[in-house]
Design a protein around this nucleic acid. Sequence first.
RNA 1: GGGCGAUUAGCUCAGUUGGUUAGAGCGUUUGCUUUACACGCAAAAUGUCGGGGGUUCGAGUCCCUCAUCGCCCACCA
Length: 886
Amino acid sequence: MSSCQHELPRAYEPADVEKKWFPIWENNGYFHGKPNPDKKGYSIVIPPPNVTGILTLGHVLNNTLQDVLCRYHRMNGEEVCWFPGTDHAGIATEARVEKYLRKEENTGRDELGRDEFIRRVWKWKEEFGGKIIRQLRTLGCSCDWERERFTMDEGLSDAVRRVFVELYNKGYIYRGQRMINWCPVAKSALSDEEVIYKDVPGHFWHFRYPLADGSGYLVVATTRPETMFGDTAVAVNPDDPRYKHLIGKLVKLPLTDREIPIVGDEHADPTKGTGCVKITPAHDPNDFEVGKRHKLAVINVMNPDASLNANAGPEFEGLDRFEARKKCVAMMDEQGLLDKVEDIVHAVGYSERGDVPIETLVSYQWFCNMKELAKPAVEAVKSGSIKFYPERWSKTYFHWMENIQDWCISRQIWWGHRIPAWYNDDNGEVYVGVEAPTAPGKWRQEEDVLDTWFSSWLWPFSIMGWPKNTDELKYFYPTCDLVTGPDIIFFWVARMIMAGCEFMKEIPFRNVYFTSIIRDETGRKLSKSLGNSPDPLDVINAYGADALRFTIVYIAPVGMDIRYSNEKCEIGKTFANKLWNACRFRQMQGACTDAAEKLGAETVAALSGDEKWMLSKLDAALDSIKTSLADFRFHTAAHDLYDLVWSDFCDWFIEAEKVPLRAGGADKQRACEVLDYALWRILRMLHPFMPFITEELAHAMGFLADGDTIMYSAFPENDGLAVSDGLIAMVEGKFELVRGGRFLRANYNIPDGRKVNFFIKAADADALAELESERQMLTGLLNAENLTLSLDEFDSAADGAAPSKLCGRGTIYLPLAGLIDVNAELIKLGKQRKELEGWISGARGKLSNERFLAKAPEQVVADAKKQLAELEDKLTRTVELINSLS
RNA sequence: GGGCGAUUAGCUCAGUUGGUUAGAGCGUUUGCUUUACACGCAAAAUGUCGGGGGUUCGAGUCCCUCAUCGCCCACCA
């Protein structure tokens, strides 16, 4: 078939093979997808990794699965396009580059100013960014690299501006003063989703706030003493008999010279704490609401970096919030105003990126009202237009969507899409538009940029050229499948659905597969700080990309976390080696035949039992794999492939085929043809999972000509060479006898390599006939010198007692004149007899249960009867054996 | 407080509408360099399927309950 066949080395060495094929694929344009009316389209958009990111095992899993899907659909004749790209990751990148500039040039944001800083970020991005995209190639990802995009590319930025303007004009986007989450590290507002709550130990400090008239004090409890400088009231419940008479009076706010009112408000719960609550409208969402009800002043006591500002007074101004807390408590204690201190564990909101406690504070920000956007997006999932795998994630989705809050979209950083709003300071006018205002006047553009996710939520269509109505959009949108982690269901998945429905009037994808989260062996999350996060490139160097891909798919359970360790890559590595050697074995039998694509009619007519068995195993695996992939049950497909190759093909089929191969002539020719046919099918079935080794072997074996690629070879179809159940049972009955023979050898320490005599007493005349027809194979598999097949008992009187093993189709004996340990055999057989009797009594009990007979399906009853008959037969034969030995 | 998931061999996990004697890999034990593979071959051992109750002719599988572990959301003066 091909001139490029070459001899394979003894062990598979992935490094050179993997380096060789990727450039060939890429340079030939095999990854490129373009609108093609003659084919069905299949598209995936990559979850754009952060431009600062480097490859992690999470990416490996995620992108391997996407690649499996893409390669599979490509082999099914579809026009596949996998759109790659990166996300500008505003806060993360800005922090990363700031750190870099500080280290390399001892400069940064503040020194450089906005324009220069942004120029430096772009420079950094060109130089170091997107490393991950290059690393994905090492993994073999068949993305359409010609279409790589970045969320801050001109086209995508234009999409962002248009979307902003459209939502503003619809009244969804507005600017307002609200309680927001503030990250003191980024010195920016955050969305609710960017806050992570952690349980941490803390204290309740009970403070005495003296009544202004000197008649006593109220006790308030707080976890945040340093915010007391922003207190503008103390609230009590209006129905609380202890305090209601105090409403309207004043307390003196300690450490300040202010007096604040006691207000009556339902917010104060008489059953909690002392029943008195200090009200800090500037720093607590509930207090903010109380403040609004009572028209209280909002006193912000924090600087952007969470140090205290002038409102905290000269003693505290400039102090870090935690320093201020200590000092505040100490001063209260000194003044005898610290009532008591309680140790508690409470949830504290942390900034996702900065990993420090956030502040809640009141600030002017841009928001997007999501209520209307959510409606069609909820409907899309409810109606099944979009399906989630595993389905249960839809519950999480609905819960969030149905309680959706306004999205804080402005960020006080520089790296990102600057909000397209301009202020006219002369007349207070606000202009929002895609381009700067042309109207005369002094216009000043909004300083803030947009949340990173405000560009990523447009990704499925902005990456295809929207707002232009491109051919790509017409052909590839909506995309088919999305593969991502459940951790970004709110950040990204839900918002993409909303954006698709709103701006494209069509869902962005049909299926969403949520991957597992990868943990280490002990179940901890992988993280840099724990040092338990292996570098995938090291793993690829040690085991090979195919091995890593296969392993991670193989061990990824559906919808659960993965416990990963590098050692597990042995699975993929040894599997690759096994496949390699199966091919090597075939190659040692001679050149590739013409049968790889299709078996000739004559060959089909002449197939042996084992060969038919193998072909039907292949078909069964094929059907199962197709179903599994259609349901995103990747690991089931990987397990099927593993078992097919290792157990069925290597352990049984290759071993069985050694018999006709040894026989030579027509037998050998036929065996080679079937081996070629089966191997070529196996390689194609494996290709989506292990792209490199399968391409290499397809060429090395001569299944493909130079210049061809397995990437565009057809995924196998069920070949319709159907085989009867009877034949499968016959072949597997034969295998059982072989296993029985090996068991006997092992018991008597007779190496498999030594030829011995076997005697098989067939269970009945049919079995005898079948076994007789398989005599050659049986003799070969058992490595027997002589094989006697008979309906008669083994004649222990004449030939000496022999150990035996009971199998379905017969009983196999290993005659060992004089060597047998009769007692050991009797003990073994006695045990077996007892077991059989147990099962028989169970089976009889079931069959004598009238309700079972009446209610169970016919087939189940028939099977039970058949099983009982088999057990009874086995028992009879066991008893016969016992009698013959005792 | 609300929701979701997990609990099966020493370890990591399969087990698709309930239906023969619950499986795999790793590890363990034993024996093999048999003309692909020691990254290998053959064989063996190990389970009250977390506890309890229920439905059913029949439960690892369905229902209830308890326990333990984990995740998400909300709340917390």
